[in-house]
Design a protein around this nucleic acid. Structure first.
Lengths: 335, 335
DNA sequence: CTCGGGCGTGATATCGTCAACATTGGAGGG
DNA sequence: CCCTCCAATGTTGACGATATCACGCCCGAG
C-alpha cells in the first residue's frame, strides 16, 4: 500500500460528484442536505479514507477543538484522576486535551503555552489557587478552575469539601465520639481550608469543642508524623477517640502510626479519610472515607469551558461518605 | 482594554515596514535576515503582541507541533509520572502533548483520535504491550513505545527492568540470603516479565534455586495477599528470608502482611521494591528499591519521536538500586 | 570594467476548510 | 398561469502562514 497524500474535501467531492461545500455540509452535519446526496458523500468519504483536516478548519473558523489542562503536578492521585476524567469527557465531545504543566516559569508561562497552541479554553486542575492569585489570568481564554476560591474571573468547579467533611464529623459524633481531632492539608490549599471548616463548624453546631488540629502535606509520610504527634499523649484527661483526616494518603500514615503505637483502629481510634482512592478499601482496616467524584468533577469542568459557563459561576459536586471498618463507637474503658 | 483581533504577520509586516515573508523568516529564526531588520521586526512583534497562528502554519507545512500520548489509565503512579515527564520534555521543545486514553474502543480508537487531531507522532505509555498486539498499529505515525517488547514497527524505550531486578537480587545474595522469592506483576506485562527474568537468571548464575514465585496486579492489596501467602509457611525446612517485589506498591502490601504476622523486616525478611515512588523512603522500614528514571524515560521517548529514531531501535534507561532499611543480612537462628 | 554569485528581501501561489452569497428548480398560493 | 419562496447545491474568496521563485545589490575574480 503506497503512502498517499491524505484525502481532502476536493477528492471526496470529485468522487461523489458534488461540490466541496456539500462535502463540508455533510462533514458538519448540516440538515440542508438531501439524504440521497448525503449517503453518496458519506460513501465517498469512507472510500477515500477522508478525515477533516483540523488545522484547516481551525484556520477558517478560529476554533481549534482543543482544550488545555493546566496542572501543577501529576504526582498526586487527585490530579491524575481528574486529568483522566477531563480527557474522557473532552474526547467524548470530540475535543482534544493539551496538557500544560506549571513549571518554574509559573502559571503565566503555562497559559502562554496554551494560548500559543490556540486552545479554545482551559481547565485549571486542583491546588492552583495560590498560584492564580499571583499571576495574570488570561482574559481571552475560557477558564474553568477546579477547587479554587470563588472568583468572578473564571467558572469554578469544586467538590463539596466542607459538606463531605461535615458528614464525616457527624458520623463520628453519632457514633458517640466527643473528642474529634483533625489532620488537615497545607494552609495554601482551598480544599484543605474547606475540609477543616466542615469539621470545625459541625463540632460547633453540636456544642463540642474542636479537638487537636494538625497539618500535613497530603503525603502519607506527613500523615504518619501527624499521627504520631496526635497519639503521643493519648492518656491525657480528655483523650482523642476519633480523627478526621484531610485525605486518604495521610490517613494511611495515621493508620501506620496507630499500628506502631499498638493503638487499635477502630476500637481505640476511629479514622476517616477523604478521596476514596482505589486502595482505601484495602487498607488495614478498610478506610471509612469521603468519596471524591473525580469523574463528575472532570465532566463539569469540561462542560463549564465548552458550554460557556459564566465567569463567577460555581458547580459543586457532592461527596458521599463511605463507611468502612476504620470507624466505630468509642471504646469504653472498663471500670 | 478592547479585545482586538489577534495580530497576524501582515500586521507585524506593516508595522516594521517589511514583507510578511521577512516576518516569517524572523519568526522561524532563518539566518538570512539582516540583524538590523531582525531587530525591527522583533520590536514590531512585541508591540503587536504577535504570536504565530499554529493552525495556519500547520496547514501550510503539514506539521502540527503536537505529539500524542496514548495511555491506558492515569491511576498508576508510573503512568502519571511518565506522562508528566513527556509533557515537560515536549514543552521544552515547543511541542504540545495531546492525551488520548485507551477506552472501550481499544487502542485503535485512541490512535484514530490522534490521527484525527493530526499529531506529528505518538508515545505509547507503559503496559500497552498486550493491547498493541491485538490492534492495527498506525503506519503513518511516528511511534515510540515505552516498556513493550521489541518490535520493528516502532521505536522502543524501556527501563532496564531485568538489570535492575538482577541488581536487587544480587544485593540480597551478597547479604547472605539463599532463599529469595519473587512477587511479580501480571503476566501480560512486559516489564513484569523482564523483572522476573532478572531475578531468575541472577539466581541461576549463582547456582541458587529460585524461591517461590507469586503474582500480583501492581496494587498494594494484591501485594498484601501475596505477602500473606508467601509468609504462611515460614517455618518450612527451607524458609524464605528475602523477597524481590516487582513494584513499590505491592512491596508496601508485603510490609503490611509481615507486620501483621509479627515478622520483622529486615531481621526476618528482607524486602526490595521497584520504582522508588515518592513515599518509598517513608515506608516502615524505609524501602530498599530499584529506581525508575521516569524523567529520562520521558525524555528519550519524546526524542525518539521527534528526532526520528528508527523503528525497531531500543533505548534503555538504567535503573539504580537504592539501598534503605528494608534489607539486611539474614537472621541466624541461635543454636 | 564586466560578469558571476551570494545575500537580503519581496511577490506570488497554495495548503483545506467554511462563511457568505449565488444559483437552480420545483412546490404552492393567488 | 405566474410569481414567490424555499430547499438543495454551487461559486468565490479568505483565514495566516510558508515554499518557491524572482529581484536588486554588492563584492571579488578575471
Amino acid at each position: 500500500m503506497t503512502q498517499q497524500r491524505r484525502a481532502s474535501m476536493a477528492d471526496v467531492a470529485e468522487l461523489a460528484g458534488v461540490s466541496t461545500q456539500t462535502v463540508s455540509r455533510v462533514a458538519n452535519g448540516s440538515p440542508r442536505v438531501d439524504p440521497v446526496t448525503r449517503a453518496r458523500v458519506e460513501a465517498a468519504m469512507a472510500q477515500a479514507g477522508y478525515r477533516v483536516h483540523r488545522a484547516a478548519r481551525a484556520l477558517r473558523t478560529g476554533r481549534t477543538g482543543v482544550v488545555g489542562a493546566v496542572v501543577s503536578t501529576l504526582a498526586t492521585v487527585g490530579n491524575s484522576m481528574l486529568l483522566e476524567a477531563v480527557v474522557d469527557e473532552a474526547s467524548a465531545r470530540g475535543y482534544a486535551v493539551a496538557v500544560a504543566r506549571i513549571g518554574e516559569g509559573g502559571p503565566a508561562e503555562a497559559f502562554e503555552r496554551l494560548r500559543d497552541q490556540g486552545v479554545d479554553g482551559a481547565i485549571v486542575v486542583n491546588e492552583a489557587s495560590a498560584l492564580l492569585r499571583q499571576s495574570e489570568l488570561p482574559t481571552d481564554l475560557r477558564l474553568a478552575v477546579v477547587d479554587s476560591p470563588p472568583d468572578d474571573r473564571y467558572a469554578g468547579v469544586e467538590t463539596a469539601h466542607a459538606a463531605g467533611s461535615a458528614a464525616a464529623t457527624t458520623h463520628l459524633r453519632e457514633l458517640g465520639h466527643r473528642v474529634i481531632a483533625h489532620i488537615g492539608g497545607p494552609e495554601s490549599s482551598y480544599a484543605a481550608a474547606e475540609r477543616e471548616r466542615g469539621w470545625r463548624e459541625t463540632l460547633a453546631a453540636a456544642g463540642l469543642k474542636p479537638g487537636a488540629l494538625l497539618r500535613g502535606a497530603w503525603d502519607s509520610a506527613s500523615g504518619y508524623r501527624a499521627g504520631l504527634e496526635l497519639l503521643a499523649n493519648l492518656d491525657a484527661s480528655d483523650p482523642v477517640t476519633a480523627v478526621v483526616v484531610a485525605n486518604d494518603q495521610m490517613a494511611l500514615g495515621v493508620l501506620r502510626a496507630a499500628s506502631e503505637l499498638g493503638i487499635l483502629v477502630p476500637e481505640q481510634l476511629s479514622v476517616v479519610g477523604f478521596d476514596d482512592v482505589a486502595d482505601a478499601a484495602n487498607f488495614t482496616p478498610a478506610l471509612t472515607t469521603v468519596r471524591q467524584r473525580f469523574d463528575l468533577l472532570g465532566q463539569r469542568a469540561v462542560a463549564a469551558v465548552l458550554d460557556g459557563a459564566e465567569a463567577g459561576s460555581r458547580a459543586v459536586i457532592e461527596a458521599p461518605l463511605v463507611v468502612r471498618g476504620s470507624t466505630g463507637a468509642p471504646f469504653v474503658q472498663p471500670a
